[in-house]
Write a protein that binds this DNA or RNA. Structure first.
Lengths: 276, 276
DNA sequence: CTGCGTTTGGAATTTAAATTCCATTTCTTA
DNA sequence: TAAGAAATGGAATTTAAATTCCAAACGCAG
């Protein structure tokens, strides 16, 4: 007869720990699963926290933490923490040195490429705070908050940005239309004078985006442009311009800055519309 | 008359700590200087070690460690350790409380929110290098490069990621299908045994993504999962897991890390397929 | 709805770590 | 080199954290 209780051998690496967690989490009772999720989401905290702190963070009793540790095969929290602490010191060669190391060895590896994108993303984000004019941003929020319906236009490379905007607006109950170009059905006629348009495009600019924005402008709708340089074709439309200078790695860019700008814009608009 | 003894105010940042250490180290007695050097060489250990462990590491008595802490202006070791631990967790900040604080200060301007997203994005990117296992990443690239057709599955919040993958693959002439769920047409039957699937989902997991991935797995296709924690339902599918811990600002996240991972993955796959 | 096994919260206990204290040693300087 | 001051090592004490225990709450099968 097999004992169902705690596993006898404690995991001896973080990997093993999470593997076991993945296969055990399902059959754990409510509170333990709750804590399991907390750990999965904040593995970093274990090394530097007490039982009480983690318990509070996960909104669970300290004793539940102990039971969890035992369920995972440890004698108690201390033993589990020891594992996390030893892992911690391994990954401490911190971000900059790790990055350097990644670049140094095999420049061809996917990890090296990932490191490139991470680094480029980080500087793009940094730049973002200087390229986006706070006043223009506030204006954009005002205009979008006032609009009856918000239209998002952006294709190809810009589509992740507009689709994320669509998701965010939907979640906040803001009336918004994503012009996806599906089936080549043109939805331009949906754009009314009291609406506003968020047009997203980067060099080389997608024709269709410019066209649609131009027509929307003609009907009297306001335009908010997320683009890369002031000379962008959208400038001619008296659009409120939000500039993002996203750096490339090879032929691609990470879009981190554009996405961050978009989500900040969306959340601000949502907050303002819902009268927060 | 100036009291030479322990400083009254403890340093409140790591920087301040080391600055003070630099200016004090000279006039410290032998054992304390010895310990000071040890700390300077291993600042990382403080967050996760006991007095006894550090004392042993520096070949010094525990009481010397205490005297050192007091000499530096702390009430004792615990207080000093608190500083080092909080510094560590700055990399993994508790953004919900910070955001609450930000709101409390009445600084709810769009720019402040943007700054939040930028900061969160930057740490998420940093984390990315530690949460993504280079070996798993390489495996994922191999599997995808070998696949006849690549299928991308991901909805709602994950859709920007999959749509960007679709754009990148298209640009590199890699046969790839974006399962967009348009018109509720189910394209699962397109997935063949020699294909591979990239499934993207974050808690709370979208049912459809899990379902489709499960069915794909049943037909024999390989699964690469971009997800947030190992307890994700995708774990059960023997998927190659690429973990992203994206930090939230309120109910939203910037997606910077997820997008960066995706594009790095796509470019690596493209390069490998086109025999670079 | 009743009894039994499981899970939970919280208090009680144990264990381990931090901190203090003091006798001894080591420097300083007259 | 002797006296005083500072520094040191290690044991004693205090404090805080980990761990256990048990009564109450919960869920489930009969």
């Amino acid at each position: 007869m097999t004992e169902i209780g705690p596993d006898q051998t404690p995991p001896d690496t973080i990997d093993a720990f999470f593997k076991r967690l993945g296969s055990t989490a399902d059959r754990l009772p409510k509170r333990l699963k709750q804590f399991a999720n907390f750990i999965a989401a904040n593995p970093d905290r274990v090394a530097v926290s007490t039982v009480a702190e983690l318990a509070e963070g996960a909104d669970v009793q300290p004793s539940a933490v102990m039971r969890f540790c035992q369920e995972m095969g440890f004698s108690g929290y201390s033993q589990m923490q020891k594992l996390f602490r030893s892992d911690y010191s391994q990954k401490w060669p911190d971000y900059s040195t790790r990055l350097a190391k990644l670049r140094e060895l095999g420049n061809e590896s996917p990890s090296a490429l990932l490191a490139e994108f991470v680094e480029v993303g980080r500087s793009s984000l940094e730049n973002l705070l200087t390229t986006v004019d706070p006043i223009a941003l506030q204006q954009a929020v005002d205009v979008l908050a006032r609009a009856e319906t918000i239209h998002m236009i952006g294709f190809r490379r810009a589509f992740p940005v507009t689709s994320y905007l669509a998701y965010a607006f939907e979640k906040m109950d803001v009336p918004a239309v994503l012009h996806s170009g599906i089936a080549n059905i043109n939805m331009e006629h949906l754009i009314r004078p009291n609406d506003a348009v968020i047009a997203v495009t980067f060099a080389p600019y997608t024709e269709m985006t410019i066209d649609m924005a131009t027509k929307a402008r003609a009907t009297g709708a306001d335009i908010v442009a997320i683009t890369d340089v002031v000379t962008s074709p959208l400038a001619r439309l008296k659009a409120i311009q939000l500039l993002v200078s996203e750096l490339d790695v090879g032929a691609f860019r990470a879009l981190s800055a554009s996405l961050s700008l978009a989500i900040a814009l969306a959340v601000s608009v949502g907050a303002q519309r819902n009268g927060t």
